[in-house]
Design a protein around this nucleic acid. Structure first.
Lengths: 185, 185
DNA sequence: TCTCTTTGGGAACACCTACCAGCATGATTT
DNA sequence: AAATCATGCTGGTAGGTGTTCCCAAAGAGA
């Protein structure tokens, strides 16, 4: 029983009947369970993971390897405490480029990618606006980063907004399917 | 030779002389190297990690356990592909609460934390503004989430901005210290 | 029934991890 | 200044545990 499929770069919820296409790969409820568990603890041993999702270690390992191979699992990372490493502050930065300067887009983005303090950067709808999430030690640390940003090619305006507090922050993507797999089957 | 310390909730770069305080814990260049490696690959085996940072497995394991115990390493997670699981879109949502309704703050935040599609939420400087990062399948999926957000207690205004493209996205916090530890010492 | 896929068991190998003694550093005593 | 001690870190060792590939058997679909 399949729940969903990834077809030609697009995710498809299975109609359950009438599947006249060849999906790149498919995900059933046990895969979903594996992903759900690994999103919470990426260092579980294979035998522990297998027990959580009611599979044998060998079968579980095969599924995980397939999920990794298919690019569903991009990787495993350690999550560090932002405060303890000395960067407790978060700043959202809105960057506007000189319009009609599309030739700078690529250069600007390369520059952003090279800045270690910029955690995320999104190109937004509208006129060449970017939203960046930057982590900082304090205000004077931000001054340094602000300066680096204004120096990037094509930048016309930089508007900053400081976060007072982080209410929620997660890496766990929402997954369809049961929270706990059926022990049977 | 110590590089930095965490003292009374504050990160301190060591003056190297005249350290007349008792730090909660200290981080040397080998710890930094370990953290740097684990931020890139959180599933390395201990022996592989030890080889990367030029330590014996037993010594390396002890350091990792300490970093975990001290809360520097908050955990390990699998990073999934947002597109492949069916949520390719990212929306930044700016939420304004009714002013003078501080009593709703807590309820609103609890509500946000319960929404699986809201990945991050920050309280921003200014008048009760929140910035949320929401991941969506498509426009109609966002309609559903938008509705859920407007229903939360105290919400007065919800302003959405769609991301066209993700330029950068990382979980790797910048760390001071050498990228590669000294093989000697 | 036949075919194809997926499963669980087994075995060789690698890893984990607690305990050990040895070494370096720094403080205290003589 | 020399000797002694204490402290904290290091690498080595070994038994228990986990990993991972191969194979036979069971299950689902045609």
């Amino acid at each position: 029983m399949l729940d969903a499929a990834y077809v030609n770069g697009t995710f498809v919820h299975m109609p359950l009947h009438d599947c006249n296409f060849v999906p790149d790969f498919m995900i059933d409820s046990k895969d979903t369970a594996i992903l759900r568990v690994l999103q919470r603890n990426g260092r579980l041993t294979n035998v522990e993971l297998a027990a959580e999702v009611y599979l044998s270690p060998s079968s579980c390992l095969r599924r995980v390897q397939k999920l990794e191979h298919d690019g569903l699992i991009e990787g495993y990372v350690a999550i560090l405490n932002q405060t303890v490493i000395g960067k407790p502050g978060t700043v959202f930065v809105q960057v506007t480029l000189d319009s009609q300067q599309q030739e700078y887009l690529h250069e600007f983005e390369e520059g952003v990618r090279a800045l270690d303090d910029v955690m995320d950067c999104h190109l937004m709808a509208g006129d060449a606006d970017y939203i960046l999430r930057v982590i900082v030690a304090d205000a004077s640390d931000y001054e340094r980063i602000h300066e680096q940003l204004t120096r990037l090619p094509g930048v016309s305006r930089v508007k900053s907004a400081f976060a007072l507090r982080t209410v929620k922050r997660t890496t766990q993507l929402p997954l369809n399917g049961p929270a706990v797999p059926d022990r049977r089957a």
